[in-house]
Design a protein around this nucleic acid. Structure first.
Lengths: 229, 229
DNA sequence: CGTATCGTTGAAATATATCAATCGCAGTGG
DNA sequence: CCACTGCGATTGATATATTTCAACGATACG
């Protein structure tokens, strides 16, 4: 993938942003990729990068959906995050990727050389802050997820997951699940059966309605929120 | 705490570091606090900061041990990390702390104004990179912990925990546990009883020997490693 | 030396996993 | 157009790891 990428990743004009420097106060967000990066398409289940590979590129989802994950030797998988359009991923401070990344469905990804961003950061503190801010955002998500995995029940996990998706698209009447039950299970630290049963249960309680297995309608936002903890 | 800190946190000379700028390649670590910060002492179980409080200070453990954590409304607690001497914590990109922090035992903490670091970062890309690097390190730890909480058995969790502590002090013949069984349980997503039983079991299997409940001798590093997954 | 706190152990309960069967839908080919 | 196939999702029955509840033991502290 890296080799293939190297040739297709044409880096366009670098536009150093000017504006108020932002180390002092939170200012957000600011389009790191503006005018940068090459667009690539990944098929369903195609690997974008693997754990331990050189982290020479940074990615942003243009369309589709991506999962990042780790696997143990015996195949147990923990999904770290689901990335949706607009999300940046694969940005590492160190040399290598800490997780693998795969497209969940056919996805368009904008790819940018990390060094291009680093060079910008060298000169513009605002870019430096933006890079840091992305990592900090990721950390925040990971830390909330620790609470979910360490201390929440199966039902609370699923409800929290749906709540998070719903919060992301507040105006959408339905939550669209791009990922399989297995993906959700590996994200929530459960089995597919438990995820499935929990959906059925939430539906029986009138909290949600399933329209096919990939569309979830939230019947009562309040009831769903109560289920999150 | 913040008010109390404000008066005692005398910021000494700021020494902007000069040297090779490091956005391009991994270079590590570099003493952010050199010449900065005030020393404070926190008693056992004293709060250093609370979740949601303004993140105006950054902390480094000089001696002792610190836990960071989140709590749910009903009291369930998830410990995010244990910080040991040399560790930096409380550094946030956003305005507020995402977790609370408490001293586990009487601890000396070096406290530094975040703005002092931000001002440095404004001028020195190296400082900017160092701040980012700290956050990225934290993210890395969080992501490994996700795998532990989501996919590992009780025994694997405890073994992984011991392994990590042991790796941190490779030459020490004994692992010193500064934290209670409850702290470990809340870190590992288990109950105190399960943690206790697992210690007993690992001891029965000849992997470790307990010398009192706070000292662990690793009898077979290989056996311990095998238990980690 | 008594008391409180923390840790350990045991027995029982339970949430979730595991194993296994069926269902349902999408794609395929007759 | 409709059976056929395959894969993911659901449901059921059972197993099990971990929790919960409870008692006891050890250790530190005043």
């Amino acid at each position: 993938m890296s080799a293939q990428l190297a040739q297709s990743a044409v880096v366009h004009t670098l536009r150093p942003m000017v504006g108020p420097t932002s180390w002092s106060r939170e200012s957000e967000p600011f389009d790191l990729f503006q005018g940068l990066g090459a667009r690539m398409t990944f098929d369903r289940d195609a690997e974008i990068y693997g754990e331990g590979e050189a982290a020479d590129f940074v990615y942003r989802v243009a369309s589709g959906c991506v999962r990042t994950y780790k696997v143990l030797a015996d195949g147990r998988r923990q999904i770290g995050d689901f990335l949706l359009p607009g999300d940046v991923f694969g940005l590492e401070a160190g040399a290598d990727h800490l997780l693998s990344a795969e497209a969940i469905c056919r996805s368009e990804i904008v790819v940018c050389r990390r060094n291009a961003l680093f060079n910008l950061a060298q000169r513009s503190p605002e870019v430096g802050h933006a890079l840091w801010s992305l990592t900090a955002r990721e950390l925040e998500r990971a830390q909330s997820h620790l609470m979910l995995l360490g201390r929440k029940s199966a039902c609370e996990r699923v409800a929290t997951f749906l709540q998070t998706l719903s919060d992301r698209f507040p105006e959408d009447p339905e939550i669209c699940l791009h990922m399989s039950r297995q993906d959700m299970a590996d994200y929530l630290g459960l089995t597919i059966e438990t995820v499935s049963r929990t959906f059925t249960q939430l539906q029986a309680e009138g909290v949600i309605a399933l329209h096919g297995c990939r569309k979830v309608e939230v019947l009562s936002r309040q009831a769903l929120r109560r289920k999150t903890y």
